[in-house]
Amino acid sequence: MTCFETFQAYALRSIGIGERLLPRSDFTLCDHFVLIGSGMIWNIYFALMALASGFFLATALAVAKGAANPWARKPAEWFIFVFRGSPLFIQFFFAYFFFLGLKGQYAFFDAFTAAWLGALIVLFLNTSAYSGEIFYGALRSIPKGDVEAADAYGMSGWPRFRRIVWPTMLRLAWPAYTNEAIFLFHATTLVFFSAFPAWQQRGDALYYANYFADKTYNPFIPYPILAMYFILFTLVIVGGFGLVNRHLNRHLPAERRAKIKYRPKLIR
C-alpha cells in the first residue's frame, strides 16, 4: 500500500469510515501517522464539545458560588469540590457503571454507555467544575471601581452583569482558562483507557498509539508521534485562545494586558 492508499483507507477509521480491519503486521511509519492522526478526531471532538458546553455551566457555577443565597452557593460549592477533589479516571469508571445500571432498567440510557455521549458528559461536568473555580476566582478579583462605575451609570442586575462583570471576569480568567483548555484536551486521552469501550476499535489517538506499541513492542515510534500531534494541537489552542485574549484586553494599555503563560497541570 502506498501512503496515499493508507490515508484513504484509514484517515477516518476512528469514526468508522474506510477499511474495517486495522493493519496487523509490517507497520509503516505512514500507518502510524495516519491512524494516530485519525484518532485525534475523537480527542478534538471531546475537547471542543466539552469546552463549548462547559463554558456556560462554568459561568453559572461561578455566579452561584459567589452568591449570598446558600441555596445557590452550597450546591455549587459541593459540585466543584466533588469534581475537583476526585480523579477524572475514577469519575469515568463511576459514570460508566452508573449509566450501565440505568441502561439495565431504562432503554433510554442506551447511548449513555457509549463513549461519544457518556464520556462527553463526564468531561463536560469535570471541565465545568475546574473552569467554574477559575471564573469564581476571577469574579472575586474584579476591580471594585468597575462595579461602582456601573452603579453610577445606573446599571444593575442583568445589564450590569452582561456588560461589566462578565467581560471583566473573562478577561481576568482567560490565561488560567487557556491552561484549563489544554488540560482538558490532554485529559481526553483517558476516555478509552477507563471503562468506556472502543466500539469496533474506533478509538482516540492514544488508543491507536497503544495498539501499535502492543503489536510491535516498540514504544519509541508511536508515542513520539502521538506527542508530536499533541504538541501541535496544544500550540493551536494557545494560538486560538491568545487571539481571544487579545480581543478581551483590547481596551487596555499594552503593559497592563494579561499574558497567557503555558502552565498546565496535566493530570486531574
Partner: peptide, 14 residues
C-alpha cells in the same frame, strides 16, 4: 509537561 501524562505512563513502563 507538554504531552498527556497518560501517554508518558504507557511509554515509560515499556
Amino acid at each position: 509537561r507538554g504531552v498527556p501524562d497518560i501517554a508518558f505512563f504507557l511509554f515509560f513502563v515499556i
